[in-house]
Amino acid sequence: MSLPRSLSPLGRAMATPLGGLAGGWLILVILAAVLAPVLTPYDYDIQNLPQSFRAPDAEHWLGTDEFGRDLLTRILFGARTSLSVAVTSILISVAAGMILGALAGYLGGRFDRIVTTLVDLTWSFPEILVALILVAIIGPGATGTMVAIAVAYLAQFTRLTRAQVMAIRAETYVEAARSLGASDAHILIRHLIPNALAPVLVTAMLSTGDAIILEATLGFFGLGAQPPVPSWGSMMSSGSALLFKAPWIIIFPGLAVAAAVIAINVFGGALIAALDVRSRPREG
């Protein structure tokens, strides 16, 4: 298949059928989150107890929850929490991980050993455990969750960047740059980090899917965004206690999480193909 060379990697990923479908769904979810207040006539936080546990109907497309609130409205606003927490925490994680990893890989020596040890330490526990410990220290809520997820995923970005930088460091063009008198900062910023970027971006994309699940898990334990702010995880959690009485309360947020994570993974797969160095047209 030959694609127009002018397209960016993102564009090339979107141009494949599966990638397009997944990307389209993600754009839809992001739009729904942004436009939530205009899309629904209901409030996400105003309780209407006599209307509790209404099954899906024309008035409430996805039914109401245990407080009589419109479930679709809660899912739209929940997308804001879930996506913003997941994306922000991964951005923090990527930024911090790339800086640490690049410095460790480029400088080597004692700094490298300290960073590697610390990072390996967090890597020796499952992400959920690291996140739970951190939330216990920082305290529940959206900020706590963000920091916890960011630290939980820091290890992989640090190690990935470090490995990339160490591989590229020995390349002849880096040596050439150094012999021409380029400073360490110049080499890092202009040569090493840009070339380490592609795999980090793909990993970041895939990790965002994991982060959504981690955010939902923390929300499920009641440790994420605090009520009445909805998050998909906390909605599923309250729904789990009502599984037999009002199954829609857990099913729809669950579907929202599943669809978003599958879309991210599929799109991430398409992005890997699009970013593959071998298929990328040579510059210059």
Binding site: E66, P140, Q226, P227, S238
Partner: peptide, 29 residues
């Protein structure tokens, strides 16, 4: 974090709001 406590607390939060008290929920294990 038990589900009945969380549910009851959200109703209490709304009832406090009705008289003008904003209550911010913190859920502990």
């Amino acid at each position: 974090s038990d589900s009945i406590f969380r549910r009851l607390t959200e109703v209490v939060q709304a009832e406090l709001k009705a008289v003008g008290i904003e209550a911010k929920i913190t859920t502990f294990d």
